[in-house]
Amino acid sequence: MALHLIKLCVGCESPEQLEGWIEDRLALRRQLGEPVEQIHTTRMVPRRMEELEGGSLYWVMKGMVRARQKLLEIRPFTDSEGIGRCHLVLEPELIRTEWQPRRPFQGWRYLKPEDAPRDASGSSEDDALPDHLKRELHELGLL
Protein backbone atom coordinates (compact mmCIF):
# COMPACT_ATOMS: atom_id res chain seq x y z
CA MET A 1 0.00 0.00 0.00
CA ALA A 2 1.17 3.51 -0.85
CA LEU A 3 2.25 6.10 1.67
CA HIS A 4 0.29 9.38 1.67
CA LEU A 5 0.87 13.03 2.57
CA ILE A 6 -1.36 15.17 4.79
CA LYS A 7 -1.42 18.97 4.75
CA LEU A 8 -3.47 21.84 6.15
CA CYS A 9 -5.60 23.56 3.53
CA VAL A 10 -4.95 27.06 4.90
CA GLY A 11 -7.75 29.56 4.32
CA CYS A 12 -10.11 26.93 2.98
CA GLU A 13 -13.25 26.11 4.92
CA SER A 14 -14.82 23.37 2.80
CA PRO A 15 -14.18 20.93 -0.02
CA GLU A 16 -16.50 23.02 -2.19
CA GLN A 17 -14.28 26.07 -1.70
CA LEU A 18 -11.18 24.03 -2.60
CA GLU A 19 -12.92 22.76 -5.75
CA GLY A 20 -13.56 26.37 -6.73
CA TRP A 21 -9.90 27.25 -6.23
CA ILE A 22 -8.84 24.26 -8.34
CA GLU A 23 -11.21 25.24 -11.15
CA ASP A 24 -9.96 28.84 -11.07
CA ARG A 25 -6.30 27.80 -11.22
CA LEU A 26 -6.89 25.36 -14.08
CA ALA A 27 -8.80 28.05 -16.01
CA LEU A 28 -5.93 30.50 -15.49
CA ARG A 29 -3.38 27.95 -16.74
CA ARG A 30 -5.54 27.38 -19.85
CA GLN A 31 -5.76 31.13 -20.41
CA LEU A 32 -1.97 31.52 -20.08
CA GLY A 33 -1.32 28.60 -22.43
CA GLU A 34 0.40 26.59 -19.69
CA PRO A 35 -0.05 22.84 -19.26
CA VAL A 36 -3.43 22.25 -17.63
CA GLU A 37 -2.45 20.43 -14.45
CA GLN A 38 -2.98 21.15 -10.80
CA ILE A 39 0.26 21.86 -8.98
CA HIS A 40 0.71 22.55 -5.28
CA THR A 41 4.14 23.94 -4.34
CA THR A 42 5.75 22.96 -1.04
CA ARG A 43 8.98 24.06 0.57
CA MET A 44 10.27 20.63 1.49
CA VAL A 45 10.88 17.72 -0.86
CA PRO A 46 9.65 14.33 0.40
CA ARG A 47 12.56 11.93 0.86
CA ARG A 48 10.26 8.92 0.58
CA MET A 49 9.08 9.77 -2.95
CA GLU A 50 9.11 6.18 -4.17
CA GLU A 51 6.78 5.12 -1.33
CA LEU A 52 4.36 7.93 -2.25
CA GLU A 53 3.78 6.52 -5.74
CA GLY A 54 0.07 5.76 -5.99
CA GLY A 55 -0.66 7.73 -2.81
CA SER A 56 -2.79 10.79 -2.12
CA LEU A 57 -2.55 14.21 -0.52
CA TYR A 58 -5.11 14.46 2.31
CA TRP A 59 -6.43 17.95 3.08
CA VAL A 60 -7.19 19.19 6.61
CA MET A 61 -9.86 21.92 6.70
CA LYS A 62 -10.83 23.61 9.95
CA GLY A 63 -9.30 20.84 12.08
CA MET A 64 -10.73 17.88 10.13
CA VAL A 65 -9.44 15.76 7.27
CA ARG A 66 -12.19 16.32 4.71
CA ALA A 67 -10.85 15.37 1.28
CA ARG A 68 -7.97 13.94 -0.70
CA GLN A 69 -6.42 14.19 -4.13
CA LYS A 70 -4.37 11.53 -5.87
CA LEU A 71 -0.66 12.32 -6.19
CA LEU A 72 0.33 12.01 -9.84
CA GLU A 73 3.92 13.20 -9.68
CA ILE A 74 6.47 14.86 -7.40
CA ARG A 75 8.79 17.36 -9.11
CA PRO A 76 11.67 18.70 -6.99
CA PHE A 77 13.17 22.01 -8.16
CA THR A 78 15.34 24.86 -6.95
CA ASP A 79 13.74 28.30 -6.90
CA SER A 80 15.34 31.58 -7.98
CA GLU A 81 16.76 32.07 -4.47
CA GLY A 82 18.49 28.68 -4.50
CA ILE A 83 15.98 27.06 -2.12
CA GLY A 84 14.92 23.47 -2.79
CA ARG A 85 11.17 23.20 -3.30
CA CYS A 86 8.73 20.72 -4.70
CA HIS A 87 5.74 20.70 -7.05
CA LEU A 88 3.11 18.15 -6.09
CA VAL A 89 1.15 17.35 -9.24
CA LEU A 90 -2.36 16.36 -8.20
CA GLU A 91 -5.38 14.83 -9.87
CA PRO A 92 -7.81 17.79 -10.07
CA GLU A 93 -10.70 15.64 -8.81
CA LEU A 94 -11.35 16.06 -5.09
CA ILE A 95 -12.42 12.90 -3.26
CA ARG A 96 -14.38 13.46 -0.05
CA THR A 97 -13.26 11.44 2.97
CA GLU A 98 -14.79 10.57 6.29
CA TRP A 99 -14.11 13.33 8.77
CA GLN A 100 -11.03 12.77 10.92
CA PRO A 101 -9.83 15.33 13.52
CA ARG A 102 -6.27 16.66 13.21
CA ARG A 103 -4.37 19.13 15.34
CA PRO A 104 -2.62 22.01 13.54
CA PHE A 105 0.88 21.40 12.18
CA GLN A 106 3.24 23.11 9.75
CA GLY A 107 4.07 21.89 6.28
CA TRP A 108 3.06 18.38 5.30
CA ARG A 109 3.43 15.07 7.08
CA TYR A 110 3.58 11.48 5.93
CA LEU A 111 0.36 9.56 6.51
CA LYS A 112 0.41 5.77 6.78
CA PRO A 113 -2.32 3.99 4.83
CA GLU A 114 -3.76 2.46 8.01
CA ASP A 115 -4.11 5.95 9.56
CA ALA A 116 -5.81 7.55 6.56
CA PRO A 117 -9.56 8.16 6.71
CA ARG A 118 -11.72 6.14 4.36
CA ASP A 119 -13.41 7.74 1.40
CA ALA A 120 -16.86 9.09 2.29
CA SER A 121 -19.74 6.83 1.39
CA GLY A 122 -21.51 9.60 -0.47
CA SER A 123 -24.82 8.62 1.08
CA SER A 124 -27.51 11.25 1.23
CA GLU A 125 -27.51 10.98 5.04
CA ASP A 126 -23.91 12.25 5.11
CA ASP A 127 -24.75 15.17 2.83
CA ALA A 128 -27.98 16.12 4.61
CA LEU A 129 -26.29 17.52 7.74
CA PRO A 130 -24.73 20.99 7.69
CA ASP A 131 -20.98 21.11 8.41
CA HIS A 132 -21.31 22.77 11.84
CA LEU A 133 -23.69 20.01 13.00
CA LYS A 134 -21.45 17.26 11.59
CA ARG A 135 -18.51 18.78 13.46
CA GLU A 136 -20.42 18.86 16.77
CA LEU A 137 -21.66 15.29 16.36
CA HIS A 138 -18.17 14.11 15.47
CA GLU A 139 -16.68 15.85 18.53
CA LEU A 140 -19.29 14.12 20.70
CA GLY A 141 -18.33 10.76 19.18
CA LEU A 142 -21.73 10.29 17.56
CA LEU A 143 -20.49 10.27 13.97
Results as ranks from 00 to 15, higher is better:
Glu93Leu: 05
Glu93Cys: 05
Glu93Ile: 05
Leu94Gly: 03
Leu94Ser: 02
Ile95Leu: 01
Ile95Lys: 03
Ile95Gly: 00
Arg96Ala: 04
Arg96Gly: 00
Arg96Thr: 02
Thr97Ser: 04
Thr97His: 00
Thr97Met: 02
Thr97Glu: 00
Thr97Arg: 00
Glu98Met: 11
Glu98Phe: 05
Glu98Ile: 04
Glu98His: 09
Glu98Lys: 08
Glu98Arg: 06
Trp99Tyr: 12
Trp99Ala: 04
Pro101His: 08
Arg102Glu: 10
Arg102His: 14
Arg103Ser: 13
Arg103Cys: 12
Arg103Ala: 13
Arg103Met: 13
Arg103Gln: 14
Pro104Ser: 12
Pro104Glu: 10
Phe105Thr: 11
Phe105Gln: 13
Phe105Cys: 12
Phe105Lys: 13
Gln106Lys: 15
Gln106Cys: 15
Gln106Gly: 15
Gly107Arg: 13
Gly107Asn: 14
Gly107His: 13
Gly107Thr: 14
Gly107Trp: 11
Trp108Glu: 02
Arg109Ala: 08
Tyr110Ala: 10
Tyr110His: 14
Tyr110Phe: 15
Tyr110Met: 11
Leu111Cys: 03
Leu111Val: 04
Lys112Gln: 14
Lys112Asp: 14
Pro113Met: 06
Pro113Lys: 05
Glu114Pro: 06
Glu114Val: 11
Glu114Gly: 10
Glu114Ala: 12
Glu114Ile: 12
Asp115Thr: 08
Asp115Asn: 12
Asp115Cys: 11
Asp115Gln: 14
Ala116Phe: 02
Ala116Tyr: 00
Ala116Ile: 04
Ala116Met: 05
Ala116Ser: 09
Ala116Asp: 03
Pro117Cys: 12
Pro117Arg: 03
Pro117Glu: 07
Arg118Pro: 03
Arg118His: 12
Arg118Ile: 02
Arg118Ala: 05
Arg118Lys: 15
Asp119Glu: 15
Asp119Gly: 09
Asp119Tyr: 08
Ala120Lys: 00
Ala120Cys: 01
Ala120Thr: 01
Ser121Trp: 03
Ser121Cys: 08
Ser121Asp: 06
Gly122Glu: 09
Ser123Gln: 15
Ser123Asp: 15
Ser123Lys: 14
Ser123Phe: 14
Ser123Ala: 15
Ser123Gly: 15
Ser124Arg: 10
Ser124Cys: 09
Ser124Glu: 11
Glu125Trp: 11
Glu125Ile: 08
Glu125Gly: 07
Asp126His: 04
Asp126Lys: 01
